[in-house]
Write a protein that binds this DNA or RNA. Sequence first.
DNA 1: ATAAGACATCGGACTCTGTCAATATAGATG
DNA 2: CATCTATATTGACAGAGTCCGATGTCTTAT
Lengths: 124, 124
Amino acid sequence: MSKSLVVLSPADPAACCPPLSQVPLSAEQAGQVAPLLKALAEPVRLRLMSLVASHPGGEACVCDLTNAFDLSQPTISHHLKVLHEAGLLDREKRGVWVYYGARTEALASLGTLIGDPPQQPGPG
Amino acid sequence: MSKSLVVLSPADPAACCPPLSQVPLSAEQAGQVAPLLKALAEPVRLRLMSLVASHPGGEACVCDLTNAFDLSQPTISHHLKVLHEAGLLDREKRGVWVYYGARTEALASLGTLIGDPPQQPGPG
DNA sequence: ATAAGACATCGGACTCTGTCAATATAGATG
DNA sequence: CATCTATATTGACAGAGTCCGATGTCTTAT
């Protein structure tokens, strides 16, 4: 099986485009990627993402996450929803509890998009 | 000259911490990194950053950037200021023109922080 | 000195976002 | 059924963000 270049996975919008520093992002591409960054660009959500991603198994229960902050339960629930709808967290209900899992591929794509160095111009 | 490991460059807050997926980010670390992401988490600024970073020499004149958007000159100026104050763009005046240059190290740090995969647990 | 061009800053209108209290939903248990 | 617990949704509000037109600043040219 080949991971086709043509596929535009809706769950991984950052995979849409070459790194920032290599080719100018189109308006459309920017419009796809910005929501991902916006979801991460908030201290509480950044910590939530990190808590989940660094948890054993890459997932964590909401109850653990809620206790890690000095914020109300609805607020944590809201932030988790934002991360989930951005495609950065998976959501799975098990009995009474809800587990959120990190979409590490999405994080990896985003990291590559942002961080990859500019290409050297070829000779000639 | 050595680029010391001890230095916490104020211009590169993303260099403060190990990747998201390896160790939970502290509140303080999240508070340092989030502004960088917030600066990028806007379609126009994302495109501006990409335009500058992918420009030959990694820098571009404001006049070029302003023409690339359907927005007023003050609006572009505002977005460039946000990116500059976040530490993602350098600013240099040459005669009448102002050139903005991409801080590729900051981008690289940010990319690593977000995108690096979780560490394998050691045996034992 | 006057004028013109490149860019920044200001002040406002309007929208978006983070937070909480209150309430709803859904599964487990008596 | 009633009740308890875990999580989500709603509604309200303050603060922050985006955008524009008007204006200010700095540099070069005449």
